[in-house]
Deep mutational scan, measured.
Amino acid sequence: MIIKINGKYYKIKKIEKNPNGKYTITTENGKKYEFKNVKIFSEEELK
């Protein structure tokens, strides 16, 4: 799965839903981001 952050695309390693309704997304390079609204892309959609 792929996520778009600030115009760049990252591969997703893990998605966790937090009790506060936000999502914590861990990218393949180990960085964590927290979002309220998340749009996930499949690799097929990006081709």
Rank of each mutant, 00 (worst) to 15 (best):
N20W: 04
N20F: 05
F35M: 14
K11C: 06
T27I: 15
G21T: 00
I12W: 01
F41W: 13
T26R: 01
N18F: 08
Y9P: 06
G30T: 00
N37V: 11
N29M: 08
K39N: 11
K36H: 12
K13M: 12
Y33K: 02
I15M: 07
K47Q: 15
I3N: 00
I12Q: 00
F35C: 09
I12A: 04
N20L: 05
E28F: 14
E16W: 10
K32V: 15
K11A: 09
N18L: 14
N20M: 06
F41Y: 15
K36G: 06
K39M: 13
P19C: 08
P19M: 12
E44A: 05
K4G: 07
Y33R: 02
V38H: 06
G7N: 11
Y9R: 04
K13W: 10
I12V: 14
G30H: 02
F41S: 06
T27Y: 03
N18Q: 12
Y10P: 00
K8I: 12
K32F: 05
K17T: 06
Y10D: 02
L46P: 06
K22Y: 14
N18C: 09
Y10R: 04
E45R: 01
Y9H: 06
F41D: 07
F35S: 07
E16V: 11
N6D: 11
N29G: 13
K31A: 12
T26A: 01
N6R: 13
E43H: 03
K39W: 12
E43G: 02
E43C: 13
N6F: 12
L46W: 10
N37F: 15
Y33D: 00
K39P: 13
N29E: 12
N37Y: 15
N37H: 14
T24Y: 09
E28I: 13
Y33H: 07
K13Y: 14
I15R: 00
G7T: 04
K36C: 14
Y10K: 03
K14E: 11
I40F: 09
I12M: 02
K13T: 10
K8V: 13
K32Q: 15
Y23P: 00
T24N: 07
K17Y: 10
I2T: 07
V38P: 15
Y10N: 03
K39R: 11
K8E: 08
K32C: 08
G21L: 02
K4C: 12
K4W: 08
F41H: 03
K39Q: 15
T24D: 05
K11Q: 05
K11V: 10
V38N: 04
K4P: 03
E16F: 10
E43M: 02
M1D: 06
F35P: 02
S42I: 11
E45I: 03
I25D: 00
K14Y: 12
I25C: 03
T26L: 09
L46S: 05
F35N: 02
M1A: 10
V38D: 07
E43F: 02
